[in-house]
Amino acid sequence: MTELAVLDRLSADSQHPVEQLVRHPRLPLVAGTAAKSRLVRVWDCGGGRLRELAPVDLGPAREPDPSEWWRSETAPPVAWHPERPLLVVADGDTLTRWTPDGPSAPEPASAAYLHLAFSPDGRTLWAKPSGGSSDALDLATGAAVPAPYWDTGVAVHPSGELVATLVSDQSATFCLFARPGAEPPAAMRQLRHALVLAADGYGTPLFSADGRHLAVRGNAYFDSLDVFTFPSLRRVLTRTLAEDDAQRWPDENLAWDVRPGVLWIGTPTGSLLELDVETQEIVEHPSPAGVAISALTATASGELLVAHADGALALLSVGPATPAPEAADDVAVFLAGTEEVPPTGELEEHLVYTDGSGSWESEDPDAD
Rank of each mutant, 00 (worst) to 15 (best):
D364Y: 03
P60E: 13
G92W: 15
G345I: 13
D101F: 00
G290F: 14
V18R: 06
P17N: 04
V89D: 12
P185K: 00
L206M: 10
D91M: 07
G358H: 09
V18L: 11
A198S: 14
S301M: 00
W98C: 08
S130C: 01
G261L: 02
A90G: 15
R248S: 13
V22E: 10
L50G: 01
P268D: 12
G181E: 08
A242H: 14
L233K: 12
V40P: 09
A289C: 05
A246D: 13
S232R: 07
D244A: 07
L86N: 04
F207A: 12
T96E: 03
D223A: 11
G131E: 07
A367T: 10
D329K: 01
L296P: 03
P185E: 01
D245Q: 05
N219W: 10
F228L: 12
V283K: 12
A143R: 04
D276Y: 01
T96W: 04
E340G: 09
E107M: 08
T267K: 02
A295N: 11
G266N: 09
P108W: 06
T204Y: 04
V262Y: 04
V331C: 01
V236F: 09
A292K: 04
T338I: 08
R248D: 09
G218Y: 09
W264K: 00
R41E: 07
G160N: 07
L296V: 01
L296M: 03
A164R: 12
R41K: 06
S232K: 01
H16G: 06
R26F: 08
P342T: 08
L176G: 07
V341T: 05
A54G: 09
S224A: 10
Y202T: 06
E281A: 10
S119F: 06
W256C: 07
A79W: 03
L10I: 05
T269P: 04
A35L: 08
A182V: 10
S133L: 00
A187L: 00
Q15E: 11
V42I: 05
T94Q: 15
L273A: 13
E278L: 11
P66F: 14
E19G: 14
G337I: 03
E243L: 06
L139D: 12
C175G: 03
P77N: 09
D101V: 01
R23V: 12
D13W: 00
T229M: 06
V89E: 12
T173W: 02
V40A: 08
A312L: 00
R71T: 15
G122D: 01
P342K: 09
G270N: 03
L335V: 03
A136P: 06
E363C: 05
L305T: 00
E339N: 02
L347S: 13
G59I: 05
W360H: 13
F207V: 09
L29A: 11
S72V: 15
A324G: 07
